[in-house]
Nucleic acid binder design. Structure first.
Lengths: 132, 132
DNA sequence: GTGAATGCAAAACTTTTGCATGTAA
DNA sequence: TTACATGCAAAAGTTTTGCATTCAC
């Protein structure tokens, strides 16, 4: 296995995209990210957003989240954490269960694999929508 | 909340698509499903595959699986189960952990939500690819 | 200076839709 | 019979790419 060395440059576009993802603390679609950064960088092209997000994801700085809608969501990478999506209002709640890391080990033992990442997506009705 | 009543018909197209999903016991993309059924139904249109899969998913007969690739995968609905995807060879292993159902209850208690479905996707290297 | 990165537009894909026709119930 | 489903083609939407130019290092 021959790992090709890569050189990447911190361009203004890449920096602003990353910063916006960090500050917004939300899960954003490509389009939302593009619209958010566009005002500060009027010539920004959507192709650049795609290229940078894909690159940042490969590098592990950004994680993608697929909740079954058409578009993926992106967020800055962090501790493995999980998500609950309300089918009614589309709210996303970050889920943390203290001992969920055990799952990784159990999968590895039971199936003889090496788990590098995992994510749990639960869907249903959030607190508010259950009562309305 | 006004639930509109729906009437669906068991057409030959829908039947063959469902049967193929059941028999193949795999996770198929729309395109794979289309190609597989096309020979038996030469006039089959891809629009029909999309329409039927979406409908079957709404009805709960089919589950979709999003492993981060471009296209979704579909399989017949069954017990909640989870998946491991090998980043190297793309093999998909179905994961079953006896007590994983506890997670549902714990999420519900901790976050006050009602969980209707959940799926775990783990990624990494499978047994074979680890050693080659 | 040099090669990565960008912007733009075109191309490539994936998914949905309008409409006339077919067909299950 | 009649309303749902299909096939076809066009439309809509998403993501990638070619290429000349710009810019980080």
């Amino acid at each position: 296995v021959d790992k090709k060395e890569r050189f990447t440059r911190m361009t203004n576009q890449r920096l602003l995209l990353l910063e916006h993802l960090q500050e917004s603390k939300k899960h954003l679609t490509i389009d939302q990210l593009y619209s958010a950064v566009k005002p500060q960088l009027p010539k920004l092209s959507k192709a650049t957003v795609y290229r940078n997000i894909n690159l940042l994801e490969e590098e592990g700085l950004v994680q993608s989240l697929d909740i079954g809608k058409k578009e993926k969501l992106y967020e800055v990478a962090s501790e493995p954490h999980h998500h609950f999506v309300c089918d009614n209002c589309n709210r996303i709640i970050e889920v943390n269960l203290a001992d969920i890391w055990q799952i990784k080990e159990r999968i590895e033992r039971k199936y003889g694999v090496k788990v590098d990442s995992y994510q749990l997506i639960a869907k249903g009705k959030c607190d508010f929508c259950q009562r309305h």
